[in-house]
């Protein structure tokens, strides 16, 4: 998942970015609203953390501009004052949740994951597709009750596919949502991840969880369902 962090305080921004990267996010960051808006318009952001008190362009204006440009990813606002007037203004401008500074990184992460799940139609932290269960909080994947051992990137690819279960996801899309801008990217690596995932999730080659659509991308064929 690709997260955008717009925060003018260097310490907080670095901390949040590092924490999110440690927990599987590809993170873009900016220290002012204008640069933030540029990132919003240029990159396929999945979720954003935006401070309300930003220089150059305020967080409220950034959210408004993003929404006006048709970007509908979930947005979590950070506010220092914590007054309801600020929260309401942010939420009315198009944000989806708020967090009052100072906050715990765990809470921020939990809120972002909840926003991501909700935006892709999942209401529980566990995503169920066929016999596969992916827990977004613990980042554990189970196949018919057995824990499947995945690398960080394999997890990221599977999480993205499960969030978009049933949809066609192109290789470029996967790359963009998993890698940061300055990472060395090679779309062939995606093919490697997909191959490994197929092997780990379907050792007997009976399930066929990931379908390849030539020239278009991949699709998770497993049916979404709620807890069993």
């Amino acid at each position: 998942m690709r997260a955008l962090v717009v925060e003018d305080d260097n310490d907080i921004r670095e901390q949040v970015c590092q924490y999110l990267r440690e927990h599987g996010f590809a993170v873009d960051s900016a220290d002012n609203g204008k640069d933030g808006l540029h990132l919003v318009k240029e990159y396929p952001i999945d979720v954003a953390v935006i401070d309300l008190g930003l220089p150059v362009m305020s967080g409220i204006d950034l959210i408004r501009e993003a929404r006006a440009a048709g970007r509908d990813f979930p947005v979590l606002i950070l506010t220092a004052r914590g007054r309801w007037q600020d929260k309401v203004e942010g939420l009315e401008a198009g944000a989806d949740d708020y967090l009052v500074k100072p906050f715990h990184n765990e809470e921020l992460l939990a809120r972002l994951r909840a926003l991501l799940r909700r935006s892709s139609g999942w209401s529980q932290p566990e995503l169920y597709c066929g016999p596969v269960v992916l827990n977004t909080a613990s980042q554990l994947v189970k196949l018919e009750g057995q824990v499947v051992d995945l690398t960080a990137y394999e997890y990221k690819v599977l999480e993205y596919l499960m969030m978009h279960a049933g949809d066609v996801v192109s290789k470029t899309e996967l790359t963009e949502h998993i890698y940061e801008e300055d990472d060395d990217r090679d779309s062939n690596v995606i093919e490697v991840f997909i191959r490994r995932l197929r092997k780990k999730l379907d050792p007997a080659e009976t399930l066929k969880p990931i379908e390849t659509l030539r020239g278009r991308g991949y699709r998770l064929t497993l049916q979404r369902h709620s807890a069993v």
Partner: peptide, 21 residues
């Protein structure tokens, strides 16, 4: 003044909280 105070108090608190995590 309150905004400034909120910002200047809470930012270091947030950083400290992050260190604590």
């Amino acid at each position: 003044a309150l905004d400034d105070l909120a910002h200047s108090l809470k930012t270091p608190l947030a950083v400290l909280g992050g260190l604590g995590d």
